[in-house]
Design a protein around this nucleic acid. Structure first.
Lengths: 138, 138
DNA sequence: TCGATTAATGCACTTCCATTGCATTGTGGG
DNA sequence: CCCACAATGCAATGGAAGTGCATTAATCGA
């Protein structure tokens, strides 16, 4: 049982072949990927399976979903030690309007937000749109 | 020429019947509305027309689009004096996970974000998910 | 080890919504 | 009044999410 299998098992996700492959893909990419991107990566596997794989990952705190405002949601591996239950993974997401990539800037914590009376915070999402470091050098 | 017509004209949008009605709807609601909601409000008008109406509004800085993470985008009137070109309308959006309504908390400005070197900010989006003031009293 | 039970996968299908093309209608300027 | 262009309405397309069900794979207990 390798590292990935151990990790998935620790998250109560059975380490099947597809799941390990999807996990590897996500681990390799340092950007968030959409479901379509995952699909186009695994020609042979079925769309539904990948859909459910990512969904399972999300439900078990392995990935988090990012909405970069471009319609389709994207997914990225949660940080080490993040269990994503509540209020975790509160980092900033950056979407590049040029290369269309979305990255997690995990060093940038979201500042405390003070809401009006009566509002209860469950989750905070901070998305910055602009030009990423790779594209800005061109 | 009434206030609405004057306003639309000032935004280079011809004040047609449909546009005035859609504008009135948006002005009346203090929450962001999805296209489907607009549609169900105007039984007689065509889906496409409403779609293009909202799109025109968006392109001309009359409404801004909000992605509250629930799949469908929603729209809300821009603030007085907001031209939405760049860096404007930087307020917080709150989505209630109970009543599914999204409101603009325009008093809550988004704090300054410091990005790593090479990243250029064009737009910032802050979305808070939770229970709104109406639902939290139940 | 074998069989039963449960989970994962693959396929087909549905649904929802955004988006586009094109014909028709409305509007405003000359 | 007529012309040009903008707005509208209808039909159709397309992409992606989600679901039902049959099949295959994996696990567990006997």
């Amino acid at each position: 049982m390798n590292e990935i299998e151990k990790f998935l098992t620790s998250k109560n996700v059975r380490p099947t072949a597809v799941r390990i492959l999807v996990f590897r893909l996500l681990a390799k990419k340092n950007t968030a990927v959409s479901l379509s991107e995952v699909e186009s990566f695994f020609e042979k596997s079925d769309r539904t399976t990948l859909y459910r794989t990512v969904k399972t990952f999300e439900e078990n705190g392995i990935v988090h979903r990012i909405n970069d405002g471009n319609g389709v949601p994207k997914y990225a591996l949660c940080e080490e030690g993040c269990n994503c239950d509540v209020h975790n993974d509160l980092h900033l997401h950056f979407h590049c309007s040029q290369c269309n990539e979305t990255v997690c800037l995990t060093d940038h914590r979201i500042p405390q937000i003070n809401l009006p009376a009566g509002y209860i915070t469950e989750d905070v999402n901070l998305l910055v749109n602009g030009i990423c470091n790779k594209c800005s050098v061109d």
